[in-house]
């Protein structure tokens, strides 16, 4: 049954149609060449004035051209149809994974609210419940942000507000904000900043990038696996590596990981939540900062390194040079 279904895959249908056209064309040319003399004789009997010798080749060429146009037409229709089918598939995957992502924290919040409504809870218990609800609300907010950023407008036209930021301080603040998540996953974070650098950033957008990268590292790593965030200062750029010891990525996934709605599909990752948006949005945000984002992994099970490369603040460099000059 599966094999039969595979036969109706668009690509097979397309190849079948194309083969049929080519065979038809070959048969027609063959038939025409074999019978051209007879056709000529027959036509000359009816309208001898219309048929000159050189016209026969013209008709053959016209026929071939017509066939080629039809072939091209079928190809264009196929390309667009395939594109549409891919979009439909992506959309339904997206709706299914996003609804799951939204429902899980919502279910937790509802459970705690109803627990406080129906059960007698002590002050300590109620405080603990509120804390957990707050974490779930943060998770919901971050997901909703991701969805809005990806669908509301083109990331290239994002209205960003750049300001000069000390990267080290900013990263420490981001890590501090995710403290609860690190504790829950029993994850030890190492921040390796040998030399701080000043960057022009939209802090709200860049926080989203770092949150996405750290969130992914936590979700795709076993509980207790450490995470290293390393800052490297270059001449023109500053690079931030997020080094995890999680599931790692295969060659195919490395190529596609930044695509919109793309999610790694294997046995280990099938039950991990995600909408396939975080990395796509992050890359777009980094791009609007005139930076780059890349990923490397030695393979599945060997962890991965996500690198964000951002240009250093030129003014700050000039400032430093000026200060040196003054000295």
């Amino acid at each position: 049954m599966r094999k039969l279904k595979a036969l109706f895959h668009p690509i097979f249908i397309f190849i079948g149609v194309q083969v049929a056209w080519i065979v038809l064309m070959a048969v027609w040319i063959n038939w025409y060449l074999k019978n051209s003399r007879k056709i000529q004789e027959f036509a000359q009997k009816i309208r001898p004035d219309l048929f000159a010798d050189e016209l026969n080749w013209l008709i053959l060429l016209e026929g071939c051209l017509l066939m080629l146009i039809i072939l091209a037409g079928v190809y264009i229709i196929f390309v667009y149809w395939n594109k549409q089918a891919r979009l439909n598939r992506l959309q339904s995957n997206f709706v299914s994974s996003v609804s799951h992502e939204l429902k899980s924290p919502l279910a937790s919040i509802q459970l705690y609210l109803e627990t406080m409504k129906y059960q007698k809870v002590s002050k300590e218990e109620s405080d603990e419940f509120v804390e957990m609800m707050l974490t779930d609300t943060e998770r919901l907010a971050s997901l909703i942000n991701n969805i809005l950023e990806s669908s509301k407008y083109d990331p290239k036209n994002m209205q960003l507000q750049f300001q000069s930021v000390q990267l080290g301080t900013f990263l420490r603040e981001v890590v501090e904000g995710l403290k609860r998540q690190f504790e829950e996953r029993n994850c030890e974070v190492k921040l390796e900043i040998t030399e701080d650098c000043e960057l022009m950033l939209d802090t709200r957008a860049m926080q989203m990038v770092f949150n996405n990268l750290i969130g992914n590292a936590l979700r795709y790593s076993p509980i207790g696996a450490p995470l290293t965030i390393r800052v490297r200062k270059g001449k023109k750029y500053c690079e931030i590596d997020f080094i995890d010891q999680g599931m790692g990525l295969g060659k195919k996934d490395l190529k596609k990981i930044f695509r919109k709605f793309y999610r790694v599909t294997n046995k280990k990752s099938q039950n991990i939540e995600g909408a396939g948006l975080g990395l796509f949005i992050s890359k777009e945000i980094v791009r609007t900062h005139k930076g780059q984002m890349r990923v490397s992994s030695e393979g599945p099970g060997k962890g991965s390194v996500f690198t964000v490369q951002l240009p250093r603040d030129k003014n700050s460099k000039r400032q430093t040079a000026a200060n040196r000059g003054e000295e």
Binding site: S108, T115, Q119, M132
Partner: peptide, 12 residues
């Protein structure tokens, strides 16, 4: 696997 949900279910 959602630790918050598991904790809430256990409590109730």
């Amino acid at each position: 696997d959602e630790s918050h949900l598991a904790k809430g279910l256990k409590f109730n």
